[in-house]
Amino acid sequence: MAQLETMNMEDLAKARAETEAQLAQIKKAEAEYEGRKLQELKAEIEAMVARAGYSLADIFDGKSAKKGGKAKQPPKYRHPENKTITWSGRGRQPEWFKDALNSGKTREDLSI
């Protein structure tokens, strides 16, 4: 590339346009590189899992690791009157659980 100080305005504009085009190509290549690396990594993992006699679905129970639905927790508490209503003890307390505690029952009374 010629010395920038000796270039006229037309040559400078042309050099800028060429540089910006090259920069756009570099950015595109960077983005494609990440995609290629992820595909290569996934292929390596799938091959490793296949050598062990499994599939990714076996490992992730048919769910994507990103989407990763949490495993359902077993029930820890049971409704005092309706035994089909249960709660795992996680998340917001159900109204029936709060009502039972307010009426004098303990967590142990409601435990399964």
Rank of each mutant, 00 (worst) to 15 (best):
M1P: 02
A2T: 11
Q3S: 10
Q3K: 10
Q3A: 08
L4S: 07
T6Q: 14
M7S: 01
M7A: 02
M7Y: 01
M7E: 05
N8F: 11
M9R: 14
M9K: 11
M9F: 13
M9T: 15
L12D: 01
L12P: 04
A13T: 15
A15G: 10
A15T: 07
A15I: 02
R16P: 03
R16Y: 08
R16H: 08
A17Y: 06
E18K: 04
E20K: 05
E20N: 10
E20C: 08
E20H: 08
A21R: 04
A21T: 12
A21Y: 00
Q22Y: 07
Q22L: 09
L23Q: 15
L23C: 15
A24F: 00
A24M: 12
I26W: 06
I26Y: 08
K27Q: 06
K28I: 13
K28T: 14
A31P: 02
E32Q: 07
Y33L: 13
Y33M: 12
E34H: 12
G35Q: 14
K37D: 13
L38A: 12
L38Q: 14
Q39V: 02
E40M: 08
E40A: 14
L41A: 13
E44F: 00
I45H: 10
I45P: 06
E46I: 11
A47P: 05
A47S: 15
M48D: 07
R51K: 10
R51W: 10
R51I: 07
R51T: 09
A52S: 05
G53H: 00
S55E: 15
A57T: 14
A57D: 15
A57F: 01
I59K: 10
F60K: 02
D61G: 12
G62Q: 04
G62L: 02
G62Y: 03
K63F: 00
S64G: 15
K66N: 11
K66V: 15
K66Y: 08
K67A: 14
K67P: 10
K67Q: 15
G68A: 07
G68P: 03
G68M: 05
G69S: 14
K70H: 11
K70I: 12
K70V: 15
K70Y: 13
A71P: 06
A71D: 14
P75Q: 13
P75F: 13
K76A: 11
K76N: 13
K76H: 11
K76P: 03
R78H: 08
P80R: 00
P80S: 07
N82C: 01
N82V: 06
N82R: 05
N82S: 04
N82G: 04
K83I: 05
T84H: 07
I85W: 00
I85C: 03
I85G: 01
T86S: 02
T86A: 05
S88Y: 05
S88T: 09
G89T: 03
G89R: 01
G91W: 00
R92P: 04
R92W: 00
Q93P: 01
Q93A: 09
E95V: 03
W96D: 05
W96I: 02
F97V: 05
K98N: 09
A100M: 03
L101K: 06
L101H: 05
L101R: 13
L101N: 06
N102V: 03
N102A: 09
N102M: 00
S103Q: 04
S103H: 03
G104H: 04
K105A: 13
K105W: 00
T106V: 09
T106H: 01
R107G: 09
D109C: 10
I112F: 01
